[in-house]
Design a protein around this nucleic acid. Structure first.
Lengths: 223, 223
DNA sequence: GGCCGACGAAACATCGGATGTATCATGGCG
DNA sequence: CGCCATGATACATCCGATGTTTCGTCGGCC
């Protein structure tokens, strides 16, 4: 194994072992490279790799820090990969979303309070047929993200966020709007909020499933 | 933005745009660094980062290639992050698995043939109470992986593979075996194969849910 | 006494080149 | 025809120099 890969493994090990805690600052590059037994250049390659997946946070002129290592990390690491795939694999990603999102929405019911319901309703009311495509995409993203976040499971939220990443969703919407499916989507969003408010788990699950499946079938037709 | 980050973005863009296709070889480091307008050292940092998440494959003495970019890429990117978390977040990860795995198993029914059933059955029959812990972990991993693979959705398989990664599962098993839950696990594996053979979707879903939940509740109790 | 700006130390950013090593294709030799 | 030596190519690693950013400190000013 290359020295750089060893360095990556060692840094990871230090984090897992707790020698390096979230938020903690790493020794200077020179120092760390010496203690790990490699050159500064090679160490920098290792650090850069760990920075890409958001494990380390390099602050120029200051130092290198371990990030919070929260579940949202998954989102970062995944979206980079997902954004590169897309297109042919969109259907498979939607299948996964169709499995996860209904359950996530049902889980959200446990954490709902009147204010949150109101917040969701306001969100849906802010858009109508006259809204621009960009705003619609933003709304859809925000609406689903908020509900998912309420599931209380950060990993779940992170996965779904990655699956519905901006790039991917924008591509879909561009096509969808042409078919005038906007009304239907907004209607469904309304219905979902209603079901959540009633704390109706079965209905929520069904509505979200239908909602996601709708886009999925459109996708299948148009490919 | 740092030149290295720009380079990462440019390479990613080239892949998305199709200028770099899977399997294709990149220009030599020197050449590419010149055309991207940075030094070889900096380019190497970019390449190393992309190599960590398995987007690029560097073959010493030969050249750097774009990988196949298959969905299994997700697994690589995710497990690195997941292996670093674990412990406190295990429950949340199991919640996600409990949502995904039953559906994946049901999807597998569509792709089952007699040979595959036999394969699964052999797998289960190969272990009993006298098996070592290591072999049990290996069996469990293999059993679930095989079923998941049969779902036909590579992203789904990749996600579940990452969630049930070796490290994570090994930790669980170590504790589970102490509670003599091995019999129960094997019994459940048998039941799952039976349900799959009968192509009973409801039963399969229920059995897998119970199976995963069993570990999950044990986890909750022991934390 | 407190605020603010200048200055210097610390740390990362980037570069260019030198040297080592693995891989592959080629051409000669048996 | 097949095997092996060899050279070209390309990545691996290191080193040292220089630029840029950030932060904390120390004075001076209000």
């Amino acid at each position: 194994m290359a020295v750089t890969d060893e360095a990556i493994a060692k840094i990871q090990a230090m984090i897992v072992a707790g020698d390096l805690k979230p938020g903690q600052r790493l020794p200077p590059e020179k120092e760390l490279s010496e203690s790990l037994g490699l050159s500064r250049s090679s160490l920098r390659e290792a650090v850069k790799a760990l920075e890409l997946i958001k494990v380390l946070d390099v602050r120029r002129g200051d130092g290198t820090y371990v990030t919070t290592l929260e579940p949202s990390l998954l989102h970062e690491a995944m979206s980079f990969v997902i954004d590169m795939h897309a297109d042919g694999s969109l259907i498979e990603m939607f299948e996964v979303r169709r499995i996860l999102e209904p359950s996530a929405s049902v889980m959200a019911i446990q954490h709902l309070d009147p204010e949150t319901i109101a917040e969701l309703r306001t969100m849906v009311d802010q858009v109508d047929e006259s809204t621009t495509v960009e705003d619609l995409v933003a709304h859809d993203l925000q609406f689903h993200a908020r509900i998912i976040e309420l599931s209380g499971n950060a990993y779940l939220a992170s996965l779904l966020a990655a699956l519905g990443s901006k790039t991917v969703r924008a591509r879909i919407w561009r096509g969808l709007t042409e078919d005038k499916a906007v009304d239907r989507t907004l209607q469904e969003h309304h219905a979902i909020v209603d079901a959540l408010e009633k704390r109706d788990t079965e209905l929520t699950r069904a509505l979200v499933t239908v909602h996601v499946s709708g886009v999925e079938s459109w996708l299948r037709r148009s490919l």
